[in-house]
Protein backbone atom coordinates (compact mmCIF):
# COMPACT_ATOMS: atom_id res chain seq x y z
CA UNK A 1 0.00 0.00 0.00
CA UNK A 2 0.92 3.61 -0.25
CA UNK A 3 3.66 5.04 1.88
CA UNK A 4 2.83 8.60 1.00
CA UNK A 5 2.57 11.11 3.73
CA UNK A 6 0.08 13.34 1.90
CA UNK A 7 -2.96 11.88 3.60
CA UNK A 8 -3.62 14.63 6.04
CA UNK A 9 -7.08 15.11 4.60
CA UNK A 10 -8.79 12.39 6.62
CA UNK A 11 -10.45 13.64 9.79
CA UNK A 12 -11.96 10.69 11.64
CA UNK A 13 -14.69 11.74 14.02
CA UNK A 14 -14.85 10.55 17.56
CA UNK A 15 -17.48 7.98 18.40
CA UNK A 16 -18.67 10.10 21.31
CA UNK A 17 -19.48 12.95 18.95
CA UNK A 18 -21.38 10.69 16.62
CA UNK A 19 -23.44 9.14 19.39
CA UNK A 20 -24.16 12.49 21.05
CA UNK A 21 -25.36 13.95 17.78
CA UNK A 22 -27.57 10.95 17.20
CA UNK A 23 -29.07 11.28 20.67
CA UNK A 24 -29.73 14.96 20.08
CA UNK A 25 -31.42 14.18 16.77
CA UNK A 26 -33.72 11.62 18.33
CA UNK A 27 -34.51 14.01 21.14
CA UNK A 28 -35.44 16.73 18.65
CA UNK A 29 -37.65 14.28 16.76
CA UNK A 30 -39.55 13.57 19.95
CA UNK A 31 -39.80 17.29 20.62
CA UNK A 32 -41.29 17.95 17.22
CA UNK A 33 -43.85 15.17 17.60
CA UNK A 34 -44.86 16.44 21.02
CA UNK A 35 -44.97 20.01 19.79
CA UNK A 36 -47.37 19.00 17.06
CA UNK A 37 -49.97 17.97 19.61
CA UNK A 38 -50.30 21.54 20.84
CA UNK A 39 -52.40 23.75 18.66
CA UNK A 40 -50.41 26.85 18.09
CA UNK A 41 -52.16 28.11 14.99
CA UNK A 42 -49.99 29.87 12.49
CA UNK A 43 -46.88 29.43 14.58
CA UNK A 44 -47.03 25.70 14.31
CA UNK A 45 -45.37 25.39 10.92
CA UNK A 46 -42.62 27.82 11.80
CA UNK A 47 -41.79 26.00 15.02
CA UNK A 48 -41.81 22.69 13.18
CA UNK A 49 -39.54 24.12 10.51
CA UNK A 50 -37.25 25.61 13.14
CA UNK A 51 -36.82 22.27 14.87
CA UNK A 52 -36.27 20.56 11.51
CA UNK A 53 -33.63 23.14 10.68
CA UNK A 54 -31.91 22.52 13.99
CA UNK A 55 -31.75 18.85 13.13
CA UNK A 56 -30.55 19.66 9.65
CA UNK A 57 -27.82 21.84 11.10
CA UNK A 58 -26.66 19.01 13.36
CA UNK A 59 -26.55 16.58 10.46
CA UNK A 60 -24.75 19.07 8.25
CA UNK A 61 -22.19 20.15 10.78
CA UNK A 62 -21.28 16.79 12.29
CA UNK A 63 -22.35 13.94 10.03
CA UNK A 64 -21.55 15.81 6.84
CA UNK A 65 -18.35 17.34 8.27
CA UNK A 66 -19.31 20.80 7.14
CA UNK A 67 -17.14 22.03 10.00
CA UNK A 68 -13.97 20.69 8.41
CA UNK A 69 -15.01 21.42 4.88
CA UNK A 70 -13.22 23.71 2.48
CA UNK A 71 -14.77 27.18 2.48
CA UNK A 72 -15.58 26.87 -1.20
CA UNK A 73 -17.61 23.72 -0.67
CA UNK A 74 -19.52 25.40 2.13
CA UNK A 75 -20.22 28.31 -0.17
CA UNK A 76 -21.39 25.92 -2.86
CA UNK A 77 -23.84 24.26 -0.54
CA UNK A 78 -25.22 27.42 0.96
CA UNK A 79 -25.56 29.13 -2.38
CA UNK A 80 -28.20 26.56 -3.15
CA UNK A 81 -30.34 27.98 -0.36
CA UNK A 82 -30.10 31.40 -1.97
CA UNK A 83 -31.34 30.11 -5.30
CA UNK A 84 -34.00 28.05 -3.62
CA UNK A 85 -35.19 31.19 -1.86
CA UNK A 86 -35.29 33.04 -5.19
CA UNK A 87 -37.37 30.31 -6.74
CA UNK A 88 -39.75 29.88 -3.83
CA UNK A 89 -39.95 33.62 -3.20
CA UNK A 90 -40.72 34.55 -6.78
CA UNK A 91 -43.27 31.84 -7.35
CA UNK A 92 -45.01 32.07 -3.98
CA UNK A 93 -45.25 35.83 -3.84
CA UNK A 94 -46.69 35.96 -7.33
CA UNK A 95 -49.14 33.21 -6.55
CA UNK A 96 -50.30 35.04 -3.45
CA UNK A 97 -50.83 38.17 -5.48
CA UNK A 98 -53.08 36.52 -8.04
CA UNK A 99 -54.78 33.84 -5.96
CA UNK A 100 -58.02 35.82 -5.91
CA UNK A 101 -58.44 35.09 -9.58
CA UNK A 102 -57.40 31.50 -9.22
CA UNK A 103 -60.01 29.93 -7.00
CA UNK A 104 -63.43 29.14 -8.40
CA UNK A 105 -66.16 30.78 -6.34
CA UNK A 106 -68.20 27.66 -5.98
CA UNK A 107 -66.50 24.38 -6.42
CA UNK A 108 -68.30 21.24 -7.25
CA UNK A 109 -69.93 19.45 -4.34
CA UNK A 110 -67.97 17.10 -2.18
CA UNK A 111 -69.92 13.92 -2.92
CA UNK A 112 -68.28 12.14 -5.77
CA UNK A 113 -71.11 9.61 -5.95
CA UNK A 114 -73.60 12.26 -6.95
CA UNK A 115 -72.61 13.44 -10.40
CA UNK A 116 -76.20 14.43 -11.16
CA UNK A 117 -76.12 16.85 -8.30
CA UNK A 118 -72.88 18.28 -9.57
CA UNK A 119 -74.39 18.81 -12.98
CA UNK A 120 -77.32 20.57 -11.41
CA UNK A 121 -75.10 22.90 -9.49
CA UNK A 122 -73.13 23.66 -12.59
CA UNK A 123 -76.33 24.35 -14.49
CA UNK A 124 -77.58 26.55 -11.72
CA UNK A 125 -74.40 28.58 -11.87
CA UNK A 126 -74.91 29.31 -15.51
Amino acid sequence: MSDHSDHGFAHPQSITTLLTVFAALVFLTIVTVVQASFHLGNWEIWIALFIASLKAALVLYFFMHLGHEKPFNILVFFSTLFFLALFLGGTLSDRNAYRNQLEPDIDEPYRSEAPAEAAETAAAME
Binding site: V33, A36, I45, A48, A56, V59, L60, M64
Partner: peptide, 19 residues
Protein backbone atom coordinates in the same frame (compact mmCIF):
# COMPACT_ATOMS: atom_id res chain seq x y z
CA UNK B 1 -27.18 12.34 4.86
CA UNK B 2 -28.87 14.61 2.36
CA UNK B 3 -31.61 12.03 1.80
CA UNK B 4 -31.97 11.97 5.56
CA UNK B 5 -32.08 15.77 5.64
CA UNK B 6 -34.92 15.83 3.15
CA UNK B 7 -36.85 13.41 5.30
CA UNK B 8 -36.21 15.53 8.38
CA UNK B 9 -38.21 18.24 6.63
CA UNK B 10 -40.79 15.97 5.06
CA UNK B 11 -41.79 14.42 8.36
CA UNK B 12 -43.19 17.52 10.11
CA UNK B 13 -44.45 19.03 6.88
CA UNK B 14 -46.54 16.03 5.91
CA UNK B 15 -47.29 14.07 9.06
CA UNK B 16 -47.59 16.66 11.79
CA UNK B 17 -50.05 19.18 10.37
CA UNK B 18 -52.85 20.04 12.70
CA UNK B 19 -52.50 17.00 14.90
Amino acid sequence: HLVDLIWIYLFPLLYLIGK
